[in-house]
């Protein structure tokens, strides 16, 4: 067990070092969601005048989106990095050591989750500095961070899964827009009951990302809504389990290379 932990630690250490040494990989995931938050929370402020809009501050409403988007960026980085390892044969080098598959997966995820956690703290801090008000207080913030980190883990596992399946950084990059697409057709900009176009509302309703956002959102603007939280955590946990399962199968095939 200590050996496994040691190995996970090493792989995670490497993935953190590698990420930290490419400012181009750290700065956009950190700043881009903040920029979008600044622009949209003001540009869309008019939406709060709509009858039935749940809050007076669009920033309160919009903040959860940053967590989702930031984690998605971090996952792109994790996926691209791992794909590069496949591409260059670095994964072969690792495969020749007694390192275990679990160590590789968890280690690679460790880097992305560390970045995701850092982002979550930054977004939360910036949000609070600009006057976001949590109806659920400190306990809500802690729960929000927990869910945000779980979501980061889920996206990162999807990134790792894509990387192991695709095996080339360019392919991973080109598949990520599909994930962004999922984020865009969710309830990120308006509550689902205020979406007017019915096909869009239907898509947003079957889109699991909506429930992630709503789980985060309820903690800020609504209170301890058990249903929204259960859905949010449920979807996040399913995402983590599903993607990790897929990733370990993909890793096994990668290493078998039949």
């Amino acid at each position: 067990m200590t050996l496994l932990l040691n190995q996970i630690g090493r792989i995670a250490w490497r993935s953190v070092i590698r990420t930290a040494r490419q400012p181009a990989a750290v700065i956009p995931p950190l700043t881009f969601p903040l920029m979008l938050m600044a622009v949209n929370s003001n540009g869309l402020r008019a939406a709060t005048h709509l009858p039935g809009f749940p809050t007076k501050s669009f920033l309160d409403f919009f903040l959860p989106f940053s967590f989702i988007q930031g984690a998605l960026f971090a996952a792109t980085t994790a996926g691209t990095d791992l794909a590069r390892d496949v591409d260059t044969g670095f994964l072969n080098r690792l495969a020749l050591t007694p390192m275990r598959g679990a160590a590789l997966l968890l280690g690679e995820l460790g880097g992305a989750v560390a970045l995701g956690a850092l982002q979550a703290f930054v977004y939360l801090g910036v949000g609070l500095a600009f006057g976001v008000h949590f109806v659920t207080g400190i306990g809500g913030m802690a729960t929000l961070l927990l869910l945000a980190i779980l979501i980061a883990l889920g996206w990162a596992a999807i990134g790792v899964l894509l990387a192991l399946r695709a095996g080339s950084g360019e392919k991973v990059q080109s598949q990520f827009p599909l994930l962004f697409f999922l984020v865009f057709i969710s309830s990120m900009n308006l509550p689902r009951n205020l979406i007017e176009v019915s096909w869009f509302r239907d898509l947003a309703t079957i889109n699991p990302v909506s429930y992630l956002i709503e789980g985060l959102r309820t903690l800020i603007i609504e209170g301890w809504n058990a249903q929204a939280l259960a859905l949010g955590f449920g979807v996040a946990i399913l995402m983590v389990l599903g993607a990790l399962g897929g990733a370990s199968i993909a890793l096994r095939q990668r290493m078998e290379r039949t």
């Binding site: 827009p177 962004f180 057709i185 308006l190 979406i195 176009v197």
Partner: peptide, 20 residues
């Protein structure tokens, strides 16, 4: 894909804004 995504998300998701 990106412009299309934006188009769908904005035009589809936000159309109620015209009632503002």
């Amino acid at each position: 894909l990106f412009p299309l995504m934006n188009f769908l998300a904005f035009a589809g998701g936000l159309s109620r804004l015209r009632h503002v």
